[in-house]
């Protein structure tokens, strides 16, 4: 007989369905929060004013990154390669650069010149470098952990 513990009133199918719902909810919250922060940044909200949302997003990201690496997991669809990390780092750099540009030239009405454009490019380069460094660090840790997990068990001898 399958025992239901006091901590879980659901059977295995109900539990797996609830996990799926929770997973969808988590990603909705994650991307919703990201989109809300980006929109607020475009309309002129200061970083101080969105510090709460930023903190939640950072905690969520650190938790996901830490627990997946700890369990020797990477994403379902992307392979852990330097090339993928380079491509993935370009996305946030382009989005933040674009938002920075929209804010400066369209919202704040700064006249178009090369000086602020350089500033935007520096922001993009910094975001790209930071994302790439973080992803590479995670990739190295993931490989180490995966190899460690692969070596444990009966076939170690």
């Amino acid at each position: 007989m399958m025992r239901k513990t006091s901590k879980n009133n659901l059977d295995e199918m109900q539990d797996s369905r609830l996990l799926k719902i929770e997973e969808t909810g988590l990603w909705l919250a994650f991307w919703g929060l990201t989109a809300a922060m980006l929109i607020q940044f475009v309309i002129g909200t200061t970083l101080k004013e969105i510090a709460g949302e930023a903190a939640v997003l950072v905690i969520l990201s650190v938790y996901i990154a830490f627990t997946t690496v700890k369990n020797g997991l990477w994403t379902r669809s992307w392979s852990p390669t330097k090339r993928t990390n380079m491509l993935c780092s370009f996305v946030p750099a382009a989005i933040l650069g674009g938002i920075h540009g929209v804010r400066r030239f369209l919202i704040l009405g700064e006249p178009f010149s090369f000086k602020p454009l350089w500033g935007i490019l520096i922001v993009m380069a910094a975001v790209y470098a930071l994302c790439f460094a973080l992803l590479e660090l995670l990739r190295v840790l993931y490989r180490k952990r995966r190899d460690q997990l692969e070596e444990t068990g009966d076939e170690r001898e």
Binding site: M1, M2, D11, M13
Partner: peptide, 19 residues
């Protein structure tokens, strides 16, 4: 008897869930 819901038992019989 096996400690699951009827909904899950039905899904197994219908082939909608792999136990």
């Amino acid at each position: 008897a096996v400690g699951i819901s009827r909904q899950t038992m039905n899904a197994i019989e219908q082939g909608d869930y792999n136990p």
